[in-house]
């Protein structure tokens, strides 16, 4: 019988390659951080490309950033911040082994992640696509102050960067769903709070990317 109140998994399994739980947990955290280093460099390329071209085409980029609605970006920022908070809370409850609370926090996080994607699609990607604001042969552009090809470059950066970020959000949604399921059914692989902590680290990183992405694209390209 699966109870939602408390955790029924075998507690604190130590895998065979480790000596004790403390070593195992420290190793996982360090491993995750070294993976996040690669993620930073990964997005670093996108940011660097943006920086180079904005430096070069500054006035155009200023005109172009008005193509984005800061309100929608702002809502998404708030959503991500809230989800970041709730996943930190989930780790907190998992450490205290309060199963229902963990599930609720993770559920809220997942809901935020999904609404992020939905907002992005409904209010940004799809309208832009319909306006022909997608780089390529079908690009349609009528702003006389910005040459069409520079606009395409800018939209390339925008779609490339937010697309990769969105992909990370999507992966987050999948992972959160799996984690919630595993926790709910007391799966033996969730023997301590580390899986939640790992996924939390990943999710905070996704948030950090957005923390930089939002002002750069939506607020201040001047």
């Amino acid at each position: 019988m699966i109870s939602l109140k408390k955790m029924n998994q075998p507690q604190d399994t130590v895998y065979e390659q480790f000596e004790d739980l403390a070593q195992q947990q420290e190793t996982y955290v360090l491993g995750m951080w070294s993976f996040l280093v690669t993620e930073v460099m990964f997005f670093g390329v996108m940011f660097m490309s943006y920086i180079v071209y904005r430096w070069k085409y500054q006035p155009y980029f200023y005109a172009l950033h008005k193509e984005l609605d800061w309100r929608i970006g702002g809502i998404n920022t708030a959503i991500l911040l809230a989800s970041s908070f709730s996943v930190a809370l989930a780790v907190h409850y998992h450490q205290k082994k309060k199963k229902m609370n963990v599930l609720m926090c993770l559920g809220f996080t997942n809901l935020c992640a999904i609404s992020f994607i939905v907002i992005k699609l409904l209010f940004e990607y799809i309208p832009k696509w319909n306006h022909g604001h997608y780089p390529g042969p079908g690009f349609s552009w009528d702003n006389p102050y910005v040459p069409s090809h520079i606009a395409q470059l800018w939209f390339s950066l925008y779609f490339g960067t937010t697309g990769l970020h969105g992909l990370h959000v999507l992966i987050g949604v999948i992972l959160f769903s799996v984690l919630m399921y595993l926790i709910a059914v007391d799966h033996p692989s969730i023997s301590d709070y580390l899986p939640t902590e790992m996924l939390g680290l990943y999710w905070h990183f996704v948030d950090i990317v957005w923390i930089f992405l939002y002002p750069l694209y939506y607020l201040m390209p001047k």
Binding site: S49, Y134, P135, G136, P137, H149, I150, Q152, L153, S156, L157, F159, G160, G163
Partner: peptide, 9 residues
Amino acid sequence: KIGIFSPEL
């Protein structure tokens, strides 16, 4: 067609 290195753009 995301042309970040494209001289065309």
